[in-house]
């Protein structure tokens, strides 16, 4: 796949200069020429083909477009791609290793933490940053941490269970 993204939709105007940005996405530097108004979510999806990052409400409410920006969860529909120049972005595609799922993915699978799966990438990335800060959370703390991510299947019960199970798995792993 080409890592150079020159086309934004709609077509860039000839009088609008595009900017060259280099973003480390899932550990790999990616370079693209973007119009300043291109949103990070759209660059990831349409430019880099990383469609694991979903776009939902498009109004900064739902959190399905959450990615880790230098390790911190942000809504990628609410950041311009040019702002990510020189920064590190982790998307759901970067969670799993070559041969095994990330413990958070494992836990979502085991605990049925997804129904339609639309909110899942955002949920897992928010959970990843949260569990790094707080490896042994209470259920209330998990609910609080996920309060910016919406699940329209309303499958919160199992999502919370998944995050608690992931915390346990990660603690066990860290203990080894």
């Amino acid at each position: 796949m080409s890592s150079l993204y020159v086309e934004v939709s709609p077509e860039p105007a000839s009088d609008v200069p595009v900017r060259r940005v280099t973003i480390t996405v899932n550990g790999e530097p990616r370079t693209a020429d973007v119009e300043p108004r291109l949103l990070l979510a759209h660059l990831l999806r349409s430019g880099f083909g990383l469609t694991g990052t979903h776009t939902g409400c498009d109004t900064t409410n739902c959190g399905v477009c959450t990615v880790l920006f230098d390790g911190t969860p942000i809504k990628s529909c609410t950041m311009l791609a040019v702002q990510a120049d020189g920064h590190e972005v982790l998307t759901v595609e970067g969670l799993a290793g070559a041969s095994e799922l990330h413990p958070i993915q494992e836990a979502f699978k085991d605990e049925h933490g997804l129904q339609c799966g639309f909110c899942t990438p955002g949920m897992m990335l928010t959970a990843k940053a949260f569990l790094e800060d707080n490896p042994d959370p209470t259920e209330d703390e998990v609910r609080w941490a996920l309060s910016g991510n919406m699940c329209r299947c309303t499958g919160y019960q199992n999502i919370v269970k998944s995050v608690l199970a992931a915390a346990e798995m990660l603690r066990a792993k860290a203990g080894n």
């Binding site: 959190g63 911190t72 969860p73 809504k75 609410t78 941490a145 910016g148 991510n149």
Partner: peptide, 9 residues
């Protein structure tokens, strides 16, 4: 203020 992800930014 808003939600946890918005508060990060």
């Amino acid at each position: 203020v808003s939600d946890p992800i918005v508060r990060n930014r």
